[in-house]
Design a protein around this nucleic acid. Structure first.
Lengths: 188, 188
DNA sequence: CTGTATTTTCAGTAATTACTGAAATCATCA
DNA sequence: TGATGATTTCAGTAATTACTGAAAATACAG
Protein backbone atom coordinates (compact mmCIF):
# COMPACT_ATOMS: atom_id res chain seq x y z
CA UNK A 1 0.00 0.00 0.00
CA UNK A 2 1.35 3.32 -1.10
CA UNK A 3 -0.47 6.31 0.36
CA UNK A 4 0.15 9.43 2.43
CA UNK A 5 -0.04 8.48 6.12
CA UNK A 6 -3.23 10.37 6.88
CA UNK A 7 -5.08 8.73 4.05
CA UNK A 8 -3.56 5.36 4.71
CA UNK A 9 -4.76 5.40 8.30
CA UNK A 10 -8.27 6.24 7.15
CA UNK A 11 -8.26 3.53 4.52
CA UNK A 12 -6.94 0.92 6.91
CA UNK A 13 -9.56 1.78 9.48
CA UNK A 14 -12.32 1.30 6.96
CA UNK A 15 -10.84 -2.00 5.98
CA UNK A 16 -11.01 -3.14 9.59
CA UNK A 17 -14.49 -1.82 10.15
CA UNK A 18 -15.65 -3.44 6.98
CA UNK A 19 -15.10 -6.87 8.40
CA UNK A 20 -17.15 -5.94 11.44
CA UNK A 21 -20.22 -6.00 9.35
CA UNK A 22 -20.57 -8.25 6.38
CA UNK A 23 -18.24 -6.33 4.04
CA UNK A 24 -14.71 -7.48 3.23
CA UNK A 25 -11.53 -5.60 3.83
CA UNK A 26 -10.77 -4.65 0.26
CA UNK A 27 -14.25 -3.30 -0.35
CA UNK A 28 -13.99 -1.14 2.75
CA UNK A 29 -10.62 0.15 1.66
CA UNK A 30 -11.74 0.95 -1.85
CA UNK A 31 -14.68 2.86 -0.50
CA UNK A 32 -12.53 4.87 1.89
CA UNK A 33 -10.05 5.66 -0.84
CA UNK A 34 -12.73 6.90 -3.20
CA UNK A 35 -14.33 8.87 -0.43
CA UNK A 36 -11.26 10.98 0.28
CA UNK A 37 -10.05 11.26 -3.27
CA UNK A 38 -10.48 14.71 -4.83
CA UNK A 39 -10.99 13.16 -8.25
CA UNK A 40 -12.61 9.97 -9.55
CA UNK A 41 -10.18 7.06 -9.66
CA UNK A 42 -9.84 4.25 -12.14
CA UNK A 43 -9.25 0.65 -11.24
CA UNK A 44 -5.52 0.72 -11.87
CA UNK A 45 -5.05 3.69 -9.61
CA UNK A 46 -6.85 1.78 -6.90
CA UNK A 47 -4.67 -1.26 -7.50
CA UNK A 48 -1.63 0.95 -7.21
CA UNK A 49 -2.84 2.67 -4.04
CA UNK A 50 -3.99 -0.41 -2.16
CA UNK A 51 -1.59 -3.01 -3.47
CA UNK A 52 -4.20 -5.65 -4.27
CA UNK A 53 -4.87 -7.51 -7.47
CA UNK A 54 -6.65 -6.02 -10.39
CA UNK A 55 -9.40 -8.61 -10.25
CA UNK A 56 -9.99 -8.00 -6.59
CA UNK A 57 -10.54 -4.34 -7.32
CA UNK A 58 -12.91 -5.23 -10.10
CA UNK A 59 -15.00 -7.36 -7.77
CA UNK A 60 -14.86 -4.78 -5.02
CA UNK A 61 -16.06 -2.05 -7.33
CA UNK A 62 -18.85 -4.26 -8.45
CA UNK A 63 -20.02 -4.79 -4.92
CA UNK A 64 -19.81 -1.09 -4.14
CA UNK A 65 -21.86 -0.32 -7.21
CA UNK A 66 -24.48 -2.79 -6.07
CA UNK A 67 -24.63 -0.81 -2.84
CA UNK A 68 -24.82 2.45 -4.79
CA UNK A 69 -21.72 3.53 -2.94
CA UNK A 70 -19.47 3.77 -5.98
CA UNK A 71 -20.58 5.76 -8.96
CA UNK A 72 -18.98 5.40 -12.38
CA UNK A 73 -17.91 8.78 -13.63
CA UNK A 74 -16.88 9.23 -17.20
CA UNK A 75 -13.70 11.18 -17.70
CA UNK A 76 -13.45 12.77 -21.14
CA UNK A 77 -10.77 11.41 -23.45
CA UNK A 78 -10.19 8.40 -21.24
CA UNK A 79 -11.57 5.00 -22.02
CA UNK A 80 -11.12 3.67 -18.51
CA UNK A 81 -13.94 3.74 -15.98
CA UNK A 82 -13.49 6.12 -13.11
CA UNK A 83 -15.35 5.98 -9.82
CA UNK A 84 -16.44 8.30 -7.04
CA UNK A 85 -18.63 7.99 -3.98
CA UNK A 86 -21.79 10.01 -3.56
CA UNK A 87 -20.33 13.33 -2.52
CA UNK A 88 -22.72 14.55 0.10
CA UNK A 89 -22.42 12.74 3.41
CA UNK A 90 -26.15 12.96 3.94
CA UNK A 91 -26.67 11.30 0.62
CA UNK A 92 -24.34 8.52 1.72
CA UNK A 93 -26.36 8.08 4.88
CA UNK A 94 -29.54 7.77 2.87
CA UNK A 95 -28.03 5.27 0.48
CA UNK A 96 -26.69 3.18 3.33
CA UNK A 97 -29.96 3.18 5.20
CA UNK A 98 -31.88 2.27 2.10
CA UNK A 99 -29.60 -0.59 1.14
CA UNK A 100 -29.40 -2.05 4.60
CA UNK A 101 -33.14 -1.92 4.93
CA UNK A 102 -33.50 -3.69 1.62
CA UNK A 103 -31.04 -6.42 2.54
CA UNK A 104 -31.60 -6.90 6.22
CA UNK A 105 -34.99 -5.63 7.25
CA UNK A 106 -37.28 -6.36 4.33
CA UNK A 107 -36.48 -10.07 4.11
CA UNK A 108 -37.06 -10.47 7.82
CA UNK A 109 -40.36 -8.66 7.60
CA UNK A 110 -41.52 -10.92 4.85
CA UNK A 111 -40.49 -14.09 6.66
CA UNK A 112 -42.27 -12.87 9.77
CA UNK A 113 -45.43 -12.10 7.85
CA UNK A 114 -45.37 -15.52 6.33
CA UNK A 115 -44.89 -17.25 9.67
CA UNK A 116 -47.65 -15.20 11.24
CA UNK A 117 -50.09 -16.58 8.69
CA UNK A 118 -49.45 -20.17 9.70
CA UNK A 119 -51.68 -21.91 12.20
CA UNK A 120 -49.76 -22.80 15.35
CA UNK A 121 -49.83 -26.53 16.05
CA UNK A 122 -48.94 -26.42 19.73
CA UNK A 123 -48.71 -24.22 22.75
CA UNK A 124 -45.01 -23.65 22.05
CA UNK A 125 -45.77 -22.51 18.54
CA UNK A 126 -48.54 -20.27 19.75
CA UNK A 127 -46.17 -18.55 22.10
CA UNK A 128 -43.46 -18.27 19.47
CA UNK A 129 -45.92 -16.71 17.09
CA UNK A 130 -46.86 -14.19 19.68
CA UNK A 131 -43.24 -13.17 20.07
CA UNK A 132 -42.87 -12.96 16.32
CA UNK A 133 -45.89 -10.68 16.19
CA UNK A 134 -44.22 -8.36 18.68
CA UNK A 135 -41.08 -8.24 16.61
CA UNK A 136 -43.06 -7.72 13.44
CA UNK A 137 -44.97 -4.86 15.00
CA UNK A 138 -41.84 -3.08 16.09
CA UNK A 139 -40.10 -3.46 12.75
CA UNK A 140 -43.16 -2.24 10.95
CA UNK A 141 -43.34 0.85 13.12
CA UNK A 142 -39.71 1.57 12.47
CA UNK A 143 -39.94 1.14 8.73
CA UNK A 144 -43.07 3.23 8.48
CA UNK A 145 -41.29 5.96 10.35
CA UNK A 146 -38.23 5.58 8.18
CA UNK A 147 -40.25 5.73 4.98
CA UNK A 148 -41.71 9.02 6.07
CA UNK A 149 -38.59 10.60 7.40
CA UNK A 150 -36.43 9.71 4.44
CA UNK A 151 -38.50 12.00 2.27
CA UNK A 152 -37.50 15.07 4.26
CA UNK A 153 -34.96 17.34 2.66
CA UNK A 154 -31.56 17.32 4.23
CA UNK A 155 -31.91 20.66 5.89
CA UNK A 156 -35.15 19.81 7.61
CA UNK A 157 -33.78 16.47 8.68
CA UNK A 158 -30.77 18.18 10.17
CA UNK A 159 -33.09 20.52 12.03
CA UNK A 160 -34.94 17.61 13.55
CA UNK A 161 -31.70 15.96 14.55
CA UNK A 162 -30.53 19.15 16.15
CA UNK A 163 -33.64 19.27 18.26
CA UNK A 164 -33.04 15.77 19.56
CA UNK A 165 -35.34 14.73 22.35
CA UNK A 166 -36.64 18.25 22.67
CA UNK A 167 -39.10 17.41 19.91
CA UNK A 168 -40.81 15.27 22.48
CA UNK A 169 -41.59 18.33 24.54
CA UNK A 170 -42.84 20.27 21.57
CA UNK A 171 -45.01 17.39 20.53
CA UNK A 172 -46.30 17.11 24.05
CA UNK A 173 -47.16 20.78 24.11
CA UNK A 174 -48.71 20.79 20.67
CA UNK A 175 -50.62 17.70 21.63
CA UNK A 176 -52.87 19.70 23.86
CA UNK A 177 -53.89 22.09 21.16
CA UNK A 178 -53.92 20.37 17.81
CA UNK A 179 -55.34 16.97 16.98
CA UNK A 180 -52.96 14.91 14.89
CA UNK A 181 -54.06 11.52 13.67
CA UNK A 182 -56.07 9.18 15.84
CA UNK A 183 -56.43 10.01 19.53
CA UNK A 184 -54.21 8.10 21.94
CA UNK A 185 -54.33 7.66 25.67
CA UNK A 186 -52.39 10.18 27.72
CA UNK A 187 -49.56 8.86 29.93
CA UNK A 188 -49.81 10.94 33.09
CA UNK B 1 -32.23 -29.71 14.24
CA UNK B 2 -35.33 -30.76 16.06
CA UNK B 3 -37.98 -28.07 16.32
CA UNK B 4 -41.61 -27.38 15.41
CA UNK B 5 -41.73 -26.06 11.83
CA UNK B 6 -42.78 -22.54 12.70
CA UNK B 7 -39.98 -22.12 15.15
CA UNK B 8 -37.48 -23.85 12.93
CA UNK B 9 -38.22 -21.47 10.07
CA UNK B 10 -37.67 -18.50 12.37
CA UNK B 11 -34.46 -19.91 13.76
CA UNK B 12 -33.09 -20.71 10.31
CA UNK B 13 -33.89 -17.25 9.05
CA UNK B 14 -31.98 -15.67 11.89
CA UNK B 15 -29.08 -17.94 11.19
CA UNK B 16 -29.00 -16.70 7.60
CA UNK B 17 -29.41 -13.08 8.53
CA UNK B 18 -26.70 -13.42 11.13
CA UNK B 19 -24.11 -13.99 8.47
CA UNK B 20 -25.25 -10.85 6.67
CA UNK B 21 -23.77 -8.79 9.37
CA UNK B 22 -20.77 -9.93 11.30
CA UNK B 23 -22.51 -12.57 13.42
CA UNK B 24 -22.19 -16.27 12.75
CA UNK B 25 -24.98 -18.68 11.99
CA UNK B 26 -25.04 -20.48 15.31
CA UNK B 27 -25.15 -17.27 17.31
CA UNK B 28 -28.09 -16.05 15.25
CA UNK B 29 -29.90 -19.31 15.75
CA UNK B 30 -29.33 -19.40 19.48
CA UNK B 31 -30.65 -15.90 19.77
CA UNK B 32 -33.76 -16.68 17.76
CA UNK B 33 -34.40 -19.79 19.80
CA UNK B 34 -34.13 -17.96 23.09
CA UNK B 35 -36.29 -15.17 21.77
CA UNK B 36 -39.27 -17.38 21.04
CA UNK B 37 -38.85 -19.73 23.98
CA UNK B 38 -41.46 -19.28 26.71
CA UNK B 39 -38.92 -20.28 29.36
CA UNK B 40 -35.17 -19.80 29.83
CA UNK B 41 -33.14 -22.58 28.23
CA UNK B 42 -29.94 -24.23 29.32
CA UNK B 43 -27.04 -25.05 27.05
CA UNK B 44 -27.97 -28.70 26.61
CA UNK B 45 -31.48 -27.84 25.54
CA UNK B 46 -30.01 -25.54 22.92
CA UNK B 47 -27.64 -28.26 21.76
CA UNK B 48 -30.62 -30.59 21.46
CA UNK B 49 -32.75 -28.08 19.60
CA UNK B 50 -30.13 -26.86 17.12
CA UNK B 51 -28.02 -29.97 16.70
CA UNK B 52 -24.67 -28.28 17.17
CA UNK B 53 -21.87 -29.13 19.55
CA UNK B 54 -21.91 -28.26 23.17
CA UNK B 55 -18.79 -26.13 22.87
CA UNK B 56 -20.24 -24.19 19.99
CA UNK B 57 -23.24 -23.31 22.13
CA UNK B 58 -20.97 -22.29 24.93
CA UNK B 59 -19.09 -19.91 22.67
CA UNK B 60 -22.30 -18.61 21.12
CA UNK B 61 -23.80 -17.86 24.48
CA UNK B 62 -20.68 -16.06 25.47
CA UNK B 63 -20.89 -13.83 22.44
CA UNK B 64 -24.57 -13.13 23.02
CA UNK B 65 -23.84 -12.20 26.60
CA UNK B 66 -21.17 -9.80 25.42
CA UNK B 67 -23.86 -8.18 23.29
CA UNK B 68 -26.26 -8.15 26.25
CA UNK B 69 -28.64 -10.17 24.14
CA UNK B 70 -28.61 -13.27 26.32
CA UNK B 71 -29.29 -12.95 30.00
CA UNK B 72 -28.41 -15.70 32.47
CA UNK B 73 -31.45 -16.55 34.53
CA UNK B 74 -31.09 -18.70 37.57
CA UNK B 75 -33.63 -21.49 37.84
CA UNK B 76 -34.15 -22.71 41.43
CA UNK B 77 -32.96 -26.23 42.24
CA UNK B 78 -30.98 -26.48 39.03
CA UNK B 79 -27.27 -26.00 38.87
CA UNK B 80 -27.21 -25.41 35.14
CA UNK B 81 -27.23 -21.90 33.70
CA UNK B 82 -30.37 -20.89 31.87
CA UNK B 83 -30.67 -18.03 29.40
CA UNK B 84 -33.30 -15.67 28.05
CA UNK B 85 -33.27 -12.63 25.82
CA UNK B 86 -34.40 -9.23 27.03
CA UNK B 87 -38.15 -9.65 26.89
CA UNK B 88 -39.37 -6.32 25.62
CA UNK B 89 -38.71 -5.74 21.95
CA UNK B 90 -38.04 -2.07 22.57
CA UNK B 91 -35.45 -3.05 25.10
CA UNK B 92 -33.85 -5.27 22.49
CA UNK B 93 -33.78 -2.37 20.08
CA UNK B 94 -32.05 -0.20 22.63
CA UNK B 95 -29.50 -2.86 23.45
CA UNK B 96 -28.74 -3.44 19.79
CA UNK B 97 -28.39 0.24 19.03
CA UNK B 98 -26.14 0.75 22.01
CA UNK B 99 -23.86 -2.16 21.22
CA UNK B 100 -23.54 -1.37 17.55
CA UNK B 101 -22.74 2.21 18.36
CA UNK B 102 -20.09 1.06 20.78
CA UNK B 103 -18.50 -1.33 18.30
CA UNK B 104 -18.94 0.42 14.99
CA UNK B 105 -19.46 4.11 15.49
CA UNK B 106 -17.35 5.04 18.47
CA UNK B 107 -14.08 3.61 17.14
CA UNK B 108 -14.60 5.40 13.85
CA UNK B 109 -15.29 8.65 15.62
CA UNK B 110 -12.13 8.36 17.61
CA UNK B 111 -10.00 7.53 14.59
CA UNK B 112 -11.49 10.49 12.76
CA UNK B 113 -10.80 12.82 15.64
CA UNK B 114 -7.24 11.64 15.77
CA UNK B 115 -6.70 12.13 12.05
CA UNK B 116 -8.27 15.56 12.15
CA UNK B 117 -5.63 16.64 14.64
CA UNK B 118 -2.77 15.83 12.28
CA UNK B 119 -1.22 18.46 10.06
CA UNK B 120 -1.79 17.68 6.40
CA UNK B 121 1.44 17.39 4.49
CA UNK B 122 0.08 17.90 0.99
CA UNK B 123 -2.86 19.13 -0.99
CA UNK B 124 -4.21 15.58 -1.20
CA UNK B 125 -4.07 15.20 2.55
CA UNK B 126 -5.70 18.56 3.05
CA UNK B 127 -8.59 17.52 0.87
CA UNK B 128 -8.87 14.13 2.55
CA UNK B 129 -8.97 15.79 5.92
CA UNK B 130 -11.74 18.02 4.76
CA UNK B 131 -13.79 15.01 3.75
CA UNK B 132 -13.05 13.35 7.06
CA UNK B 133 -14.29 16.45 8.83
CA UNK B 134 -17.58 16.20 6.95
CA UNK B 135 -17.98 12.60 7.96
CA UNK B 136 -17.03 13.38 11.52
CA UNK B 137 -19.59 16.17 11.67
CA UNK B 138 -22.38 13.97 10.44
CA UNK B 139 -21.59 11.13 12.79
CA UNK B 140 -21.37 13.49 15.69
CA UNK B 141 -24.77 14.96 14.90
CA UNK B 142 -26.25 11.51 14.70
CA UNK B 143 -24.76 10.31 17.94
CA UNK B 144 -25.76 13.45 19.79
CA UNK B 145 -29.29 12.94 18.57
CA UNK B 146 -29.16 9.30 19.53
CA UNK B 147 -27.87 10.04 23.00
CA UNK B 148 -30.80 12.33 23.60
CA UNK B 149 -33.47 10.18 22.10
CA UNK B 150 -32.41 7.00 23.82
CA UNK B 151 -33.36 8.52 27.14
CA UNK B 152 -37.01 8.83 26.17
CA UNK B 153 -39.36 6.31 27.70
CA UNK B 154 -40.70 3.74 25.34
CA UNK B 155 -44.14 5.19 25.12
CA UNK B 156 -42.97 8.65 24.20
CA UNK B 157 -40.55 7.22 21.69
CA UNK B 158 -43.37 5.24 20.12
CA UNK B 159 -45.42 8.44 19.92
CA UNK B 160 -42.66 10.19 18.06
CA UNK B 161 -42.29 7.28 15.67
CA UNK B 162 -46.00 7.30 15.04
CA UNK B 163 -45.82 10.94 14.05
CA UNK B 164 -43.14 10.23 11.50
CA UNK B 165 -42.33 13.14 9.27
CA UNK B 166 -45.30 15.05 10.56
CA UNK B 167 -43.09 16.22 13.40
CA UNK B 168 -41.37 18.32 10.82
CA UNK B 169 -44.54 20.26 10.27
CA UNK B 170 -45.13 20.73 13.94
CA UNK B 171 -41.60 21.88 14.42
CA UNK B 172 -41.99 24.23 11.51
CA UNK B 173 -45.14 25.66 13.03
CA UNK B 174 -43.69 25.93 16.49
CA UNK B 175 -40.59 27.48 14.98
CA UNK B 176 -42.41 30.68 14.31
CA UNK B 177 -43.49 31.11 17.91
CA UNK B 178 -40.89 29.66 20.22
CA UNK B 179 -37.14 30.13 19.99
CA UNK B 180 -35.22 26.87 20.41
CA UNK B 181 -31.47 26.92 20.37
CA UNK B 182 -29.44 29.15 18.08
CA UNK B 183 -31.19 30.83 15.18
CA UNK B 184 -30.72 29.28 11.76
CA UNK B 185 -31.35 30.51 8.25
CA UNK B 186 -34.73 29.74 6.79
CA UNK B 187 -34.81 27.62 3.60
CA UNK B 188 -37.60 29.15 1.53
C1' DC C 1 -11.52 -33.41 50.69
C1' DT C 2 -13.67 -36.52 46.99
C1' DG C 3 -16.73 -37.30 43.51
C1' DT C 4 -19.97 -35.60 40.21
C1' DA C 5 -22.22 -32.32 37.32
C1' DT C 6 -21.44 -28.44 34.46
C1' DT C 7 -19.02 -25.18 31.76
C1' DT C 8 -14.99 -23.50 29.32
C1' DT C 9 -10.89 -23.82 26.71
C1' DC C 10 -8.29 -25.04 22.91
C1' DA C 11 -5.88 -27.58 19.28
C1' DG C 12 -7.18 -29.58 15.21
C1' DT C 13 -10.28 -29.77 11.27
C1' DA C 14 -13.99 -28.35 8.35
C1' DA C 15 -16.32 -24.83 5.95
C1' DT C 16 -16.48 -20.46 4.19
C1' DT C 17 -14.86 -16.44 2.23
C1' DA C 18 -11.30 -13.56 0.04
C1' DC C 19 -7.87 -13.06 -3.36
C1' DT C 20 -5.00 -13.97 -7.38
C1' DG C 21 -3.39 -14.75 -12.19
C1' DA C 22 -4.56 -16.29 -16.52
C1' DA C 23 -7.84 -16.46 -19.92
C1' DA C 24 -12.03 -14.76 -21.91
C1' DT C 25 -14.94 -11.02 -23.00
C1' DC C 26 -16.02 -6.49 -24.27
C1' DA C 27 -15.34 -1.89 -26.31
C1' DT C 28 -13.19 1.30 -29.14
C1' DC C 29 -10.48 3.09 -32.73
C1' DA C 30 -7.90 3.07 -37.00
C1' DT D 1 -12.16 -5.89 -39.57
C1' DG D 2 -8.41 -6.54 -36.69
C1' DA D 3 -5.56 -4.62 -33.17
C1' DT D 4 -5.30 -2.59 -28.74
C1' DG D 5 -6.73 -1.37 -24.30
C1' DA D 6 -9.78 -2.20 -20.53
C1' DT D 7 -12.68 -5.07 -17.71
C1' DT D 8 -14.69 -9.31 -16.06
C1' DT D 9 -14.82 -14.08 -15.12
C1' DC D 10 -13.41 -18.02 -12.90
C1' DA D 11 -10.76 -21.98 -11.28
C1' DG D 12 -7.40 -22.63 -8.00
C1' DT D 13 -5.29 -21.23 -3.68
C1' DA D 14 -4.70 -18.62 0.46
C1' DA D 15 -6.60 -16.77 4.53
C1' DT D 16 -10.06 -16.50 7.73
C1' DT D 17 -13.66 -18.02 10.46
C1' DA D 18 -16.68 -21.58 12.43
C1' DC D 19 -17.13 -25.85 14.66
C1' DT D 20 -15.95 -30.08 17.10
C1' DG D 21 -14.32 -33.40 20.61
C1' DA D 22 -11.38 -34.12 24.21
C1' DA D 23 -9.30 -32.36 28.09
C1' DA D 24 -9.12 -28.91 31.69
C1' DA D 25 -11.24 -25.99 34.81
C1' DT D 26 -14.92 -24.75 37.84
C1' DA D 27 -18.65 -25.31 41.10
C1' DC D 28 -20.83 -27.59 44.35
C1' DA D 29 -22.83 -31.49 47.34
C1' DG D 30 -21.94 -34.87 50.49
Amino acid sequence: MNLPPLIQAFVLHFGEMGSRWGINRTVGQIYALLYVSPVPLNADQIVEALGVSRSNVSMGLRELQAWNLAIPKHVPDDRRDHFTTPGDVWEILRVLAEERKKREVDPTLSVLRELLMMAPASEAERHAQHRMAEMHGLIEQLTTWYDEVKRLETERLAQLLALGSRVARIVEATDKVVSLGRPRKRKE
